[in-house]
Design a protein around this nucleic acid. Structure first.
Lengths: 130, 130
DNA sequence: TTAGGTGCAAACAATTTGCCGTGTT
DNA sequence: AACACGGCAAATTGTTTGCACCTAA
């Protein structure tokens, strides 16, 4: 793997993910940093998030739009099907399952336990009629 | 909800998902049906898959590219990080977790338990150097 | 007959990439 | 100075949608 440098952009992007409670998407990180880094480009945000995910410095949560988490130990998430919000959830995550899954012929990396539903804000909204 | 008709396309699209072991994507369904339905369009495949998912006749598995499953009872999946293949996995799925998650203030729909790793084919491939 | 469905092409949205000048080491 | 990195804009990819014609009921 290539040598790593510490550009201001990379550092600030990492901090933006780490300091956010909302498991931000690339766009959210971009929006958060733009005020203080007006020349920042969205491509750079994507490049760095993806790179840090590959190095294992960030965790990428997949879905219709990718979210990022600076908390590395695997844990449970819940995603709002209406607004896309992602939050941590205090439901136990069982690493032992990975061993069990290993008997399948696959080389198992790990697993994601992701709930879905309506977040507190969205559940009170009008369900959109049709 | 609107009246449902049974167009040939919808029926064949459903059958294509049901008869496939591979949790096909829209593109895969399209490719599978094209030989026998040369005028089928990819838009129609997307429209029908999405509609049947909303009706609950299909289950949509999200990820970088959406996959569809005709087996409705929730169960465990595993996805290959290299080729994207999705398979069923004989790791127990615990519906009781949904009740537990309900204490969070969210209106919980359910959850997905998705492992990731390398499928038998990909694990023997050269890990791409860099 | 009449709503819902289809094909097609254009529109979109998320993400990736090539190029070339800049900044870190 | 060397090579990784950033900005920018164009390119890709997955998915959705508007419209005019078609078809199941």
């Amino acid at each position: 793997m290539k040598e790593q440098r510490f550009s201001q952009q990379r550092v600030r992007i990492y901090q933006a993910v780490q300091s956010s409670m909302e498991h931000p998407s690339a766009q959210m990180v971009y929006d958060a940093l733009r005020p203080e880094m007006p020349r920042l480009s969205l491509g750079t945000v994507y490049r760095n998030l993806h790179q840090m995910a590959q190095e294992g410095r960030l965790r990428e949560l997949e879905g219709p739009v990718a979210r990022f988490d600076a908390v590395l130990p695997p844990h449970t998430h819940i995603r709002c099907v209406r607004c896309g919000q992602v939050a941590d959830l205090a439901v136990p995550y069982d690493p032992a399952l990975d061993r069990e899954a290993g008997e399948s012929g696959w080389a198992v990396n790990g697993h994601d336990l992701v709930f879905s539903g309506l977040c507190p804000a969205c559940r009170t909204e009008q369900p959109l009629e049709n």
